[in-house]
Design a protein around this nucleic acid. Structure first.
Lengths: 113, 113
DNA sequence: GTGATTACCAAGAATATCTGGGTATGCTGA
DNA sequence: TCAGCATACCCAGATATTCTTGGTAATCAC
């Protein structure tokens, strides 16, 4: 049986996850698990970030040069891979936030019809 | 060569298209071409609704019982398939608009960090 | 009768998320 | 001490949706 916090996966996440991750990393280097927790907590558990979505996304971002990874240690002393935002990643984030804004405005307009 | 209005396809559209179509149909029965034009115009050409996305979406909505289709005539006297929102479609729209709102709020919160 | 616009449709490619599985570490309490 | 739990990572295959590309056909203006 699933836990009480039944967060439904979100089809809308498509395309927004990258930006959410990049934005999270502006707070400083972090590891996958912590990134997912931060996003979930910040959104008031509205999103469920599965690791099957998260890690492929991180590889994608790394492959594109938007983040850099390095093995290190988590706050709790465990072995963890720390991701850091690159300069290119910062630019990409700005672009994606602009795109998001345009998109959200558009949807809102149609819904306001 | 593409026309001057170079609208970029939007990965974010994923999952939101259905709701946009359903919402458009609350204005009354309409055919595919008109639905796409309405969405594009309402959003100030921020979205590009390709027919390769539109028609599969309409079939999907029809298969799920959210819209009903009937052959008729467009405003210009051309043969056109008119789509009409069903009661179930209206409920679905309400649900999807609520989901969207929660989603948009969440993304906004993270971006505001 | 030619071209532009309207209107529809299908097959396959591309891309991203989800499902479900697995490995491993460190802390805590009985 | 050792079982349980949360942390932390990873992968393969399924699924779902949009995008690409190409095609048909009718109407209208020139």
């Amino acid at each position: 049986m699933p836990p009480t916090t039944a967060k439904t996966p979100n089809a809308l996440l498509h395309g927004a996850l990258d930006a959410l991750i990049l934005k999270t990393l502006t707070r400083g280097p972090s590891h996958g698990y912590a990134i997912a927790r931060f996003i979930e907590e910040t959104t008031g558990d509205a999103f469920l970030i599965e690791d099957g979505s998260l890690y492929p996304a991180l590889y994608r971002l790394e492959r594109k040069g938007w983040v850099e990874a390095e093995w290190g240690t988590s706050e709790l002393g465990r072995r963890a891979k720390l991701y850091r935002l690159t300069a290119a990643g910062r630019e990409q984030l700005a672009a994606e936030m602009a795109t998001w804004k345009k998109f959200a405005t558009g949807v809102t307009k149609v819904f306001a019809t």
